[in-house]
Write a protein that binds this DNA or RNA. Sequence first.
DNA 1: GTCTATAGTCTGATAGAC
DNA 2: GTCTATCAGACTATAGAC
Lengths: 197, 197
Amino acid sequence: MTTRIQRRNRSRILDAALEVFSQQGFRGATLDEIAAVAGLSKPNILYYFDSKDAMHRALLDALLDVWLAPLRALNPQGNPKQEIIGYMRRKLELSRDFPRESRLFANEVLQGAPRLSDEISGDLKALVDESAGIIQGWIDAGLLPQLDPYHLIFSIWALTQHYADFGAQIRLIRDGADPLEGADSYLETVFDRLLSV
Amino acid sequence: MTTRIQRRNRSRILDAALEVFSQQGFRGATLDEIAAVAGLSKPNILYYFDSKDAMHRALLDALLDVWLAPLRALNPQGNPKQEIIGYMRRKLELSRDFPRESRLFANEVLQGAPRLSDEISGDLKALVDESAGIIQGWIDAGLLPQLDPYHLIFSIWALTQHYADFGAQIRLIRDGADPLEGADSYLETVFDRLLSV
DNA sequence: GTCTATAGTCTGATAGAC
DNA sequence: GTCTATCAGACTATAGAC
């Protein structure tokens, strides 16, 4: 039986853990800091999650569903350019709405993806291979210019996630402005020009 | 007086520190691991650098010179498209030749740039403002299409650094192949199409 | 210059009172 | 469920022998 208070505390802890893990990485994060951010004692957060690792694992599992959803929505029957730009838009929305999740993922990959290699070489790779196949089909049908479909996908990741992962840098360069200001229309232009036949 | 052995040990330590800091971030890195990678004892590496912080600082200082050089080479008198593609190429070379430096920088910015905010809002911002001005001049002269020059610079950073920072992910998706395979010609195509008037 | 030993602090996790 | 108290180990850094 899970009470309202338990659910609230669990979600507070996960939110605090996301805050700290996404900024410091797994090893750099401490339970003390997570507990302080959550407003709970250290033994108490360990009552809800067995270990530091379990907290991190819970975050990664929740993250992957959200992270892979946009690519799953690619429709082989749709208009190629609109499908790809739509994918880019959904990824950019993730950077806007879930920047901490983006940084959590970035931290993991920077560290060599020690806790994500199974998911990346399994689910994600399969999904990317399938999507690259769809894009290559469009290219072969003359609906898109000649482009390496894998690099096309990587470049969408790079361009959209950059606004979340390097947001601190952009903010410092643009006098504190929202990093994503003007990003939508810029990236729209980029992919419109890139994908025109 | 600095001996040959001292210079060799200093550079061994810095190399080991780069290896560990770039993977684990500042707080996640430990002197034990740096010492082990360097093949020296922990007190010994602290004989060469006063503290963990001093090691990190030395790496950041060396990094910034290398990191900013390509943008400084932008020539207002040159051919606009070739200048920008040349800048992109030099940045991509940095990802190829100095992937650990790229990840060290990425780690810092992910953490909110606590040890780099002065350099970013000072030197780097000034350099970006100046470069954006040059690019805007080219646009106003009709030599480039209408594009936000700041986002153009950010997109060069995003696309080139992605191959170093997310190399682990790309390697897992592409069956262990060199992440940069095909990147040169792909990015050349991207910017050729983007910057044509 | 390099080592062993260790000081003093922080870390993840547990015990046990309430 | 939540707390205080605390453990064992890891951490940065220093002392002192050689």
